[in-house]
Design a protein around this nucleic acid. Sequence first.
DNA 1: AATGTATTTAACCAGTGGTCAATAAAGGGA
DNA 2: TCCCTTTATTGACCACTGGTTAAATACATT
Lengths: 189, 189
Amino acid sequence: MTPRRTVQQELTKEMIMDAARDLFSEKGYQHVSMRQIAKELGYSHGALYYHFKNKAELFYALVENHFSMLNTVLDQIMKKEMEPGEKLKEIFIGFIKFGLTYQSHYEIMFLIKDEEVRNFINEEPNHTYEKFAKSVYSLCGKNVSIQDVWFIFLSLHGFVTHYCRHVVGFEEVKGLAEAHANFLLRAIH
Amino acid sequence: MTPRRTVQQELTKEMIMDAARDLFSEKGYQHVSMRQIAKELGYSHGALYYHFKNKAELFYALVENHFSMLNTVLDQIMKKEMEPGEKLKEIFIGFIKFGLTYQSHYEIMFLIKDEEVRNFINEEPNHTYEKFAKSVYSLCGKNVSIQDVWFIFLSLHGFVTHYCRHVVGFEEVKGLAEAHANFLLRAIH
DNA sequence: AATGTATTTAACCAGTGGTCAATAAAGGGA
DNA sequence: TCCCTTTATTGACCACTGGTTAAATACATT
């Protein structure tokens, strides 16, 4: 039998999650097998089941992680001392920046299609959206309806989704992102 | 062996494509098997291979079809006699309706990440976007920049993408789609 | 009857998620 | 140093799915 690896090279949850994150966001949940993840890491697929009960649990671990990251981004911006209009713009751009900086995360959070997985992730997107919506709503005053906030979200979602697909980093579309934010601001004033 | 069917009931390319279209747009390419399509039609799965070389060929036959469908949708609306503002709204809603009615094809047209497939579909998305952009631009007068048209597209794209992921048909979000169209109209006026 | 065409059936093959006994390495006493 | 326990890893294995193919069969037409 192949000799066991030394301690330094031992498989960790983190190693698995890193590999899985890349594969999942590149190919989608369905198109990634536990065997592929293991191969990417240079381990046998059985080893993964020592660290995660099953494929879904591994996936879920990733998701939780990423949602709390985005929540933090939003919280940070809301804490800043600045004019509401500017802050609103920061929120918009912050969302885009997050999506394009952590593309693979974003895909998993908002772009995964698989129903089986979706049932799993139910609450987090809602919770994060709530945070987004409350922030936007409170910064807009009464110029804006609940529905408009949703449309703003969908619009940002469209922006991120498109440029995710074309594998572009945030810096490359920073200017466009600002223009898009302004476009949305115009829609509500 | 099960007795063979009479001539009137013989399987045709059209019958297969009709069944496949429904299934693909309901469940997505990956989640539909040749066996399922055959079962839906009441034939054995082997029979499909008499009419189509393989699953991909069957699928591409549908895709070609749907690009020209979207173009036709846009052309039809442009031909109508109506006020520019109303027409613009129709364009927006027409796009959404198309996207949510033929979800799996929309995915291929605008959402697919797979490079292999993308090389196959190179020109059509650009061509279709050109048609969309020209239509919108001409209906807006000078209130709108080229960039704004792009943002409108991204916004519609976000709407469709989101509801594609949540496997909802157009009828279920018809009202929302109209509100979204109005939202975009407000952004450019 | 003969022929060509459409269809069914069974089988093949590659791949999947998941389980598990066997086993090797590491670490801690004594 | 040896022994023992814990931990990590492996690879064989199961039951299953799905695309594809080839042989066998039924039908319609001639």
